[in-house]
Amino acid sequence: PAVNGGPREIPVGAAGPGQAVTALEKATAGTQWEITRYQDARALTEAVEDREIVGGVLVTPAGVTLYQATAAGPQATAALTAMATAVAERQHAELTVEDLAPFPEDDPRGAGFSAAALPMVFGGIIPAIALARLFPGRTGPRLAGGLLFSLTAGFAVTAVLQFGTGSLSGDYWATALGLSLGIAALAFTLLGLEALFGLPGFGIGAALMMLLANPLSGFATGPHWLPGGWSDLGQILPPGASGSLLRANAFFDGTGATGPALVLAGWAVLGAALLLTGGRLRGRREDGAEPAAS
């Protein structure tokens, strides 16, 4: 992703006189932008705040205004700013920029948000390792331990990012619960794979989460900056869904949180089902071995 990433069908909006918007569409024709027309500035800003688009350009006789949402993806915002600057230059007009969803003042580049990816991934792997070794073959303690650790880690990491570094600005409780759900989705999935397939299952699952799902999560860039197709895969894996849920809760008042929350809930339920199935199979094998031994 670092080598092949770039703008890919970034959804943006445009409003203004018909000729100006048509000229903008022709100038940005290609695979980088996906432009939608809006009637006026109000419709344009509402679309940005509702996360329908990452930004929009308003062309008026008084000048060109760019409405952006840096928290939706700083790379996409930078590319959009460059595009709007070029439009303003062609119009011989002044460019005005309004950021409708910025990162907090204490962390204007979103460094803390981007750095949350690894703690979240390790937060799912570490408890799975510990619980698998502490409670071998015991389904109940693993489920309870995974839930307790996920809640503790989710609330602790959110507290550090929001109150310690000032990297998040949303409702603390909603953000913490969302991050806890992401950690639980990872932990339960890995616990389930270990219960069903043993150490090889856990190893393959952990490797996929670290080496595939984490780079495709779009934590730092947003999904629209990833290579085509891979971004869609990344958003249905726990790290990508966790990043989208954290972004929605921390910067957009929960707008767009339903989809990733359902993805994470699905992974958590799948992991719990695998864990229960593995426990039952192990119990049957042990029951079958006892009479044979006697």
Rank of each mutant, 00 (worst) to 15 (best):
179 L>D: 04
181 L>D: 13
183 I>C: 07
183 I>S: 10
185 A>I: 11
186 L>V: 12
187 A>K: 08
187 A>R: 09
188 F>Y: 14
188 F>D: 03
188 F>P: 01
189 T>Y: 12
189 T>M: 12
190 L>A: 09
191 L>M: 14
191 L>F: 11
192 G>P: 06
193 L>W: 13
193 L>N: 08
194 E>T: 09
194 E>Y: 13
195 A>I: 04
195 A>V: 03
196 L>N: 02
197 F>K: 04
197 F>T: 07
198 G>I: 01
201 G>V: 00
203 G>S: 15
203 G>V: 14
203 G>P: 02
209 M>Y: 07
210 M>R: 10
211 L>G: 01
211 L>F: 15
212 L>P: 01
214 N>L: 13
217 S>N: 03
219 F>V: 12
219 F>E: 10
220 A>W: 04
220 A>C: 08
223 P>F: 08
224 H>M: 12
224 H>P: 02
225 W>F: 11
225 W>I: 11
226 L>D: 00
226 L>I: 01
226 L>G: 00
227 P>T: 09
227 P>L: 04
228 G>N: 12
228 G>A: 15
229 G>R: 02
231 S>D: 15
231 S>E: 13
232 D>M: 12
232 D>W: 12
232 D>A: 15
233 L>N: 05
233 L>S: 03
234 G>P: 12
237 L>Y: 06
239 P>L: 07
240 G>S: 08
240 G>A: 09
241 A>L: 03
242 S>G: 15
243 G>K: 02
243 G>R: 04
243 G>P: 06
245 L>E: 05
247 R>E: 10
247 R>C: 07
247 R>P: 04
248 A>S: 13
249 N>K: 13
250 A>W: 00
250 A>N: 00
251 F>P: 00
251 F>S: 00
252 F>S: 01
252 F>L: 03
252 F>K: 00
252 F>T: 04
252 F>Y: 11
253 D>S: 14
253 D>V: 07
255 T>A: 14
256 G>Q: 04
256 G>N: 05
256 G>S: 06
257 A>F: 00
257 A>N: 01
258 T>A: 15
258 T>H: 08
259 G>P: 05
259 G>S: 14
260 P>Y: 00
260 P>I: 06
262 L>H: 11
262 L>A: 14
265 A>H: 08
265 A>F: 12
266 G>C: 08
267 W>Q: 10
267 W>D: 03
268 A>K: 09
269 V>C: 10
270 L>E: 05
271 G>T: 09
272 A>C: 12
272 A>K: 06
